[in-house]
Design a protein around this nucleic acid. Structure first.
Lengths: 157, 157
DNA sequence: ATCTCCTAGTTGACATGTCAATCATATGAG
DNA sequence: CTCATATGATTGACATGTCAACTAGGAGAT
């Protein structure tokens, strides 16, 4: 079998563009709903989610950056904005006086809880239910397979 | 069958998060490559692609916005930046003097051709080849099914 | 201690995205 | 024709993201 072409075929390219556009559309719908129903951006949500799952609802700034896979400067800017809205607070680290600990404030926690309920509903409606129908389209199992192939492929290359 | 839950199960949520993260990762890798190999952002690429596929390599500004699904103000800002780099030009429309036509410049066309070759290679390597392997993971056919389910689901809801 | 190098985090400049307001030009009702 | 309104596009203010430079504090060698 001679394969390993250097460019996609027209069909592969169409699949790619559809995949890309559909993903964009899904993100944008979910983001808009989140914003409308809770006043939080998807960035805010990612930060609050990571903090709310962390022991003590606090994380070192760089661990937080690792967890949500953001550049540190991006996180720093974003935390500044969130801090000014009272969603998180920054405290000096006891262990390493260079470090900062990011703490979820009560306000942040309560906003996150409200947002979370509505966001999970939206994920259910817009994502999960897309695969719940009859047998004509893809199933959640197929989403898993596709995602896994991609994830593994990107891990090394 | 009682279904129609209001929130995803833990498993569905994991599938969703993986799907989201993997998509982000793929976009970010492709974008970084494009930038490194051609000096164009993915936004630049979308604009140049739409123009290069248009008859006469020109489009009314609002048609262009429709084609690439951008807000008009976003497009306007972006065209300003691209114009100052000499990639596109804006001309008054003959038919409607409110309108502007966006034209691909020779420089824009040549940059796009160079970028396109390398970008297609990247799509092949990072996306298509993820599904070319043995039978353990997802195939391109499954990507199509999954995408189609999502696209149809998002179209009405 | 002091030197060098490493790590944590912030900052500033600038690119990009969104939203609401604006401007100029159509377009249709009278 | 003239007015009210709709449309095409730009603008300005501001949120967000990236990159490179910077500050400050550890950690190891001598």
């Amino acid at each position: 079998m001679e394969n390993s072409r250097t460019s996609p075929t027209a069909h592969e390219l169409r699949v790619w563009r559809d995949f890309l556009e559909t993903g964009d559309r899904l993100r944008s719908l979910l983001g808009a709903r989140l914003q409308a129903e809770s006043g939080l951006s998807t960035g805010d949500y990612a930060v609050l989610l990571a903090l709310s799952e962390a022991p003590g609802r606090r994380l070192r700034s760089s661990s937080l950056a690792d967890v949500i896979d953001w550049e540190r400067s991006r996180l720093s800017h974003h935390l500044g904005r969130m801090e000014s809205r009272g969603l998180v607070a920054r405290e000096a680290s006891a262990a390493d006086s260079r470090g900062a600990e990011v703490v979820l404030t009560p306000l942040g926690a309560s906003q996150f809880r409200r947002a979370s309920a509505s966001h999970l509903r939206a994920v259910q409606e817009l994502f999960v239910e897309a695969f719940a129908s009859d047998g004509t389209g893809g199933s959640l199992r197929e989403v898993e397979l596709v995602t896994r192939s991609l994830r593994l492929h990107l891990a090394d290359g």
